[in-house]
C-alpha cells in the first residue's frame, strides 16, 4: 500500500489519506478490583467474573446455538443441550452400519425442513436416498462430493464448512492429524452450521482439537431393539465415564419378528 509521507514542500497542508491506523491498537483497559479490602468470597468472585469463570463440575455454558439431537439422554449430556453448531464434532465409528445416520437424522431433518443443505464429503458407500427420505430428510438438499485423495478431501471439507450454503457438513475422514483438526475447528468457529467428522475408532487415542468427541458402539446384545452406545470421550465441561445408551428408531419391522424365518440349513 501507499506509505505515509509528509511532503517537505507542504508540511502542514499535505495530508495523507492512507495510514497504518490499525497498528496503533489502544491498550486494553485493565479492570482491577476497585477496593481490595480483604480476600473476596467465592460468590463475590463469581459475581465479578461472571461468564469468565468456569467451574470444573459444570457443563460449559456456551453461547453457540445448539441443534437438538432428538434423544433426551444424549441432550442431557451434551454441553448446551444438543449438537453444537460452529464447532467440530467427532464421531468415532468402529464400523459403518451401526445406525450412525439414524443418530443424526433428527438434526438433518430439521436442517432440510428449514431449506438448508447438507454436504456429505467422501461417504463410504452410496447413500440410499429412499431410506434418507424415510427419515424425512429432503434428498434434494443433499450434496455429495466423492473425493479419494486425503488432501482434496480436506480441501473440500474446508470449503464446505466455510460456505454459507450448508446447514450441516458430514465428512468421513480416515486419517487426520491434530493440526488438521485444529485448522478445521478454527474454520468451523466462523461458520454457522453443524460439522460432523466420522473417524475410525482407532483415532480415539490420537489428540484432536474437536471440542466434542464421541465413540459410537453397538449395544444390541441380541435384542431386536436397535441400541447405540455413545461414549463421550471429550466434551466441554466435566468428563463422563459411563456410556449413554440410546434407542434408535426400530429397524426391520417388515414381517417382524421373523415368523417365516427360513432355516439356513434349508438353503
Amino acid at each position: 500500500m501507499l506509505a505515509c509521507f509528509e511532503k517537505p514542500l507542504l508540511p502542514d497542508i499535505a495530508s495523507t489519506l492512507t495510514g497504518n491506523d490499525e497498528i496503533f491498537a489502544m491498550p486494553m483497559p485493565v479492570s482491577l478490583p476497585s477496593v481490595s479490602s480483604g480476600p473476596l468470597s467465592l460468590s463475590q468472585i463469581e459475581a465479578r467474573f461472571k461468564g469468565k469463570l468456569w467451574r470444573g463440575n459444570a457443563l460449559e455454558f456456551s453461547t453457540d446455538p445448539v441443534v437438538r439431537s432428538g434423544f433426551d439422554e444424549l441432550d442431557n449430556e451434551l454441553p448446551g443441550g444438543g449438537w453444537p453448531t460452529r464447532n467440530l464434532t467427532e464421531l468415532l465409528l468402529p464400523v459403518e452400519g451401526l445406525g450412525e445416520i439414524s443418530l443424526l437424522s433428527r438434526p438433518l431433518e430439521q436442517i432440510t425442513r428449514k431449506e438448508g443443505n447438507i454436504l456429505l464429503v467422501a461417504p463410504p458407500y452410496i447413500p440410499y436416498i429412499h431410506a434418507w427420505e424415510g427419515l424425512n430428510i429432503d434428498s434434494r438438499r443433499i450434496v455429495i462430493v466423492r473425493v479419494h485423495k486425503p488432501g482434496e478431501r480436506l480441501w473440500v471439507l474446508e470449503q464446505g464448512i466455510r460456505s454459507a450454503a450448508f446447514g450441516a457438513v458430514i465428512c468421513w475422514l480416515p486419517e487426520a492429524s491434530q493440526q488438521m483438526t485444529r485448522k478445521l475447528q478454527i474454520i468451523a468457529r466462523s461458520a454457522a452450521g453443524l460439522a460432523f467428522l466420522f473417524r475410525p475408532a482407532r483415532a480415539q487415542f490420537e489428540p484432536s482439537a474437536a471440542p466434542l468427541r464421541i465413540l459410537l458402539g453397538s449395544a444390541r446384545r441380541h435384542t431386536f431393539a436397535n441400541t447405540l452406545s455413545l461414549c463421550l470421550l471429550k466434551r466441554r465441561g466435566a468428563p463422563t465415564a459411563l456410556p449413554i445408551y440410546i434407542e434408535l428408531p426400530q429397524i426391520g419391522s417388515f414381517s417382524s419378528p421373523v415368523a417365516s424365518r427360513p432355516t439356513l440349513a434349508y438353503c
Binding site: R140, V143, I144, R146, Q159, S163, A165
Partner: peptide, 22 residues
C-alpha cells in the same frame, strides 16, 4: 451453494460433485 459447486467442480472435475435423484 452454486458457487461452492462451481469451485469444487473446477478443481475436482464436474463428476465429483453430485446429488442423487429419486
Amino acid at each position: 451453494l452454486n458457487r461452492f459447486i462451481e469451485k469444487l467442480s473446477s478443481r475436482l472435475g464436474p463428476q465429483a460433485v453430485t446429488s442423487l435423484r429419486i
